[in-house]
Simulated assay, not measured.
Amino acid sequence: MNRRRRVYEGKAKVLYEGPEPGTLIQHFKDDTTAFDNTKHELIDGKGVLNNRISEYIFTRLNDIGVPTHFIRSLNMREQLVREVEIIPIEVVVRNVAAGSIAKRLGIEEGTPLPRSIIEFYYKADELHDPMVSEEHITAFGWATPQEIDDIMALALRINDFLTGLFLGVGIRLVDFKVEFGRLYEGDMMRIVLADEISPDSCRLWDIATQDKLDKDRFRRDLGGLVEAYQEVARRLGILFENDPKKRSGPTLVKS
């Protein structure tokens, strides 16, 4: 059997060469990290859940015309995606004060923000992903003004969709992080959503109880991370109701 060529490995995913030119296989790992990888554990089943939740969300976004790198699911842990040139900026959309913005601005966590706020962070673990402005992004050539406009428009559209999606299943979308890339098609280039959208990259709170259903359960040593991710998948309708104790891992509905 031919060994797959690894293109890139990050903290939570591995990218392998795809079966056709211009494609990659995105593999979701069980590695769980926080605080620039200074906190690291393997949590069995997390990658399977993130793969399925992200696949579901990206499919829905594709359906409403949001351009993404996602093509199709391959198995429980892998997706076929289009190869893109990743823009080295993490885009964070905030609806409610939580995490770093609450600390930076002295806002009580859980306070609704006056409007959705977009923040940019430079992707550099060794620098702890510093917050940057549009001026930094254009001055250093990470993206053009037009690309920033496209990214912001897509980020707000994604926020509108996700807010409604999660609200419909009793979950409050506090904030989320996304990444974008340049997809080249012949002489044409367009900005598309890349990476993933999962409880690893979102803050999701139960509307009734305010329970955290995201990676803050790991960051803050709350425990129950897989159970929280399973609850998100169950509410989205992509996890069987069968007793998980009778199974070796999460049982997911096939696409």
Score class of each variant (00 low, 15 high):
6 R>S: 11
9 E>T: 01
11 K>R: 03
12 A>L: 11
12 A>T: 12
19 P>D: 15
21 P>K: 01
24 L>T: 13
24 L>D: 12
26 Q>N: 14
27 H>V: 06
28 F>V: 03
33 T>S: 15
35 F>H: 14
42 L>D: 08
42 L>Q: 07
43 I>S: 08
43 I>A: 13
45 G>L: 09
45 G>Y: 11
47 G>Q: 03
50 N>K: 05
51 N>Y: 00
53 I>Q: 00
57 I>G: 01
59 T>V: 04
61 L>F: 15
76 M>A: 13
78 E>H: 07
78 E>L: 04
84 V>A: 13
94 R>K: 13
96 V>W: 07
97 A>V: 01
100 S>I: 08
100 S>Q: 10
101 I>G: 02
102 A>C: 00
104 R>H: 09
108 E>F: 10
109 E>P: 06
114 P>K: 00
115 R>W: 03
116 S>T: 14
118 I>S: 09
121 Y>P: 04
122 Y>L: 12
124 A>N: 13
125 D>N: 07
131 M>A: 15
132 V>A: 08
133 S>F: 06
134 E>Q: 11
138 T>W: 11
139 A>H: 04
140 F>A: 02
141 G>R: 03
142 W>M: 15
145 P>T: 02
147 E>A: 04
148 I>T: 05
149 D>H: 15
151 I>C: 02
152 M>V: 14
154 L>E: 01
155 A>M: 06
157 R>K: 15
162 L>H: 12
165 L>A: 10
169 V>H: 09
171 I>R: 03
173 L>P: 04
174 V>S: 02
175 D>W: 06
179 E>T: 02
181 G>T: 01
182 R>K: 01
183 L>K: 14
185 E>F: 15
189 M>A: 05
195 D>S: 05
198 S>T: 07
204 L>C: 09
205 W>A: 04
211 D>N: 05
211 D>V: 00
211 D>C: 03
223 G>T: 05
225 L>Y: 13
228 A>G: 04
232 V>C: 11
232 V>E: 09
239 L>E: 14
242 N>C: 06
242 N>H: 14
251 T>I: 13
255 S>A: 15
